[in-house]
Design a binder for these strands. Structure first.
Lengths: 340, 340
DNA sequence: ATCTGTCAATGAACCGTTTCCAATCCGCGC
DNA sequence: GCGCGGATTGGAAACGGTTCATTGACAGAT
């Protein structure tokens, strides 16, 4: 055939070539039982010959299920998020779902606009964070979303599923460890308390102080630090104070390198002049000299749990009550803290 | 409103409520000029009242353009990839495209199956790597794909667009730097030479030796090392040899921590007993004690370039010849290498 | 007053599947 | 030989948009 076939081959072309009805081809494609063996084989051969590729768009159109899920997180170049997302993607893919990913930059308008995009694309489910758990627009958009939502490390919206880490317990462990070494001026560097992780870290930090009967110095609690530039600056400021902290708990997901740089810049030595606990274990923490004591939880498992939870919810609908998984956090003690 | 709205609202519902034809609603949605102002406003108000959300599936069905692009890379929890992917996603999103992401685990069958999935989903374009640039199945699948493809850090398939870093130049700089310090036994740790990065790093390494008139010891070139477990093992083995290397060039994207661990385990000190150059700059390299000399290129720019290239290709079709961008790589000298 | 041209708006066809109902075919028991 | 039931297959409707030919209305020209 000299004629160049521009048009992509459809189920109708297959039907014509195999001399059957379109319905029959569809049944072959979907492994429906009531197709006789010779017909099935003829159709399958034709599919291969013509190089037919099923059109998922048309399929979704008819079935009103897209087999797509979306994930919106703050920034996926944060290593801790990356391993989380990777595990989720793998779980979705092996369940036959395609995975859409977007960064929100922790901005409300981006979150809302992504949610709208996902709605228009008719994804079957969404995994996401929220910049502010108390924002009414965000809460409304999420609780009234057209598709199931699983929240990541957010707990305030009670009516949807969520997966989180037990940051409060982690923060308490870290702080009590430092207190038990005799530290009394422990700086806490966290992100935005409008979101669960930072809020609960502050709680854990405060609880630990209360348990030790020690007053928290509010000047030592520095929040809204979302980048290493911010933690660098803040650490430098803290180290410049007259009564500088003897320990720093850098509680964010990806905010250890800032303090390390600041300490180095100030000409101090970690584990000698100042103690540090990292909020999130990493190669950087483990391989630093000295290795940094840090909190740890299983990020892959978190991603897997979230994905499975969403898949469950997609299958079973909204009848069952919202589920909540909270993963344990543990302290890995290394050499970055010295007793006072 | 007590009535539970089961069915999602369609363009037809809007048309009925606003008392116009469906075509008119469509033209309002698409900002077509020939809609009179009062009608336009009436329709827009109705859209808001009913909470109508355009169905992207139906839209794609009719227009046969999905406004979706897909990206398949080895493993997106490798930080270097993550920043690359993040920049690409941002570029696509601001162009109105939705971003599908998947890990290939560097496995041929996964790559092929993802390519098929993307075809069936009728994505408008694909950004990807290949585990083996010489594999005929992969080459065939990519060159005959139904949609434009931009290759990432792959150069053998000439007929498609690609964006890569100049790893050969990088490797040559790293190796010449070590040679100029007097090192003569330089171990090279790379990934799989079936892909461009490792292949060209071996070339650069070899070229540098030739330029210095020095014979390459094939025992010192260790390839197919794709993880830090592998580079740890290999480094440990090299350090255990009678004539151990005086320098290690850990050329992979995410293979610095393995050698660092191995050196530490062997009781040696980086920058004193052994010199190390990292193939890819990172926090780990910068904050190590001593800081590690490493290669660097702009990963965000790489992602942006790749995305823009793909968008161009989607717009203009395949008439223009394949483009090729190769980003410069530079050596950041720090304190991990000592002269012999 | 009639004709022409322009501009808005209508309504139906179409995109490629799935699914349901109807039609056909087959073998089997009477 | 005939009726019947079950298994296959055919054919059409439906999903929710976009687009195009068509209609209707109205202003301006003759």
């Amino acid at each position: 055939m000299g004629k160049a076939t521009k048009r992509t081959v459809t189920i109708r072309d297959v039907a014509a070539a195999a001399d059957v009805a379109v319905g029959t081809v569809s049944r072959v494609l979907n492994d429906h039982h009531s197709v006789t063996k010779p017909v099935r084989e003829r159709v399958q051969k034709t599919i291969l010959t013509l190089g037919y590729q099923r059109n998922a768009i048309a399929q979704s159109m008819r079935s009103s299920r897209t087999k797509m899920v979306a994930c919106a997180i703050r920034d996926f170049d944060i290593p801790a998020f990356a391993s989380y997302v990777k595990a989720a993607e793998a779980t979705f893919r092996s369940a036959g779902y395609t995975f859409i990913l977007a960064s929100t930059a922790n901005a409300k308008d981006v979150e809302l606009s992504l949610l709208q995009t996902f709605t228009q694309r008719r994804v079957d489910g969404v995994m996401m964070t929220m910049s502010d758990e108390t924002d009414p627009d965000l809460v409304y958009a999420i609780t009234n979303a057209a598709m199931p939502v699983v929240l990541i490390d957010r707990e305030l919206v009670q009516s949807v599923d969520s997966v989180s880490a037990d940051h409060r317990s982690g923060a308490r462990q870290a702080t009590e460890y430092l207190l038990s070494l005799g530290h009394r001026r422990i700086a806490l560097l966290v992100g935005d308390p409008k979101a669960y992780p930072s809020r609960s870290r502050i709680e854990g930090y405060t609880e630990a102080h209360r348990a030790f009967g020690i007053q928290v110095d509010p000047h030592l609690v520095r929040d809204r630090l979302l980048s290493n530039e911010a933690t660098f600056r803040e650490t430098a400021a803290l180290l410049g104070r007259s009564e500088r902290p003897t320990a720093i708990y850098a509680a964010g997901l990806d905010t250890l390198s800032g303090p390390l740089r600041a300490v180095r810049t100030a000409g101090l030595v970690v584990g000698k002049d100042i103690s540090i606990v990292g909020g999130n274990d990493s190669d950087l923490a483990e391989l630093n000299t000295p290795p940094i004591t840090a909190l740890r939880w299983d990020r892959s498992e978190m991603g897997r749990h979230a994905a499975e939870m969403l898949l469950d919810r997609i299958d079973q609908g909204s009848q069952s009550p919202p589920r909540r998984i909270r993963l344990p956090v543990s302290l890995v003690v290394r050499g970055s803290c010295r007793p006072i």
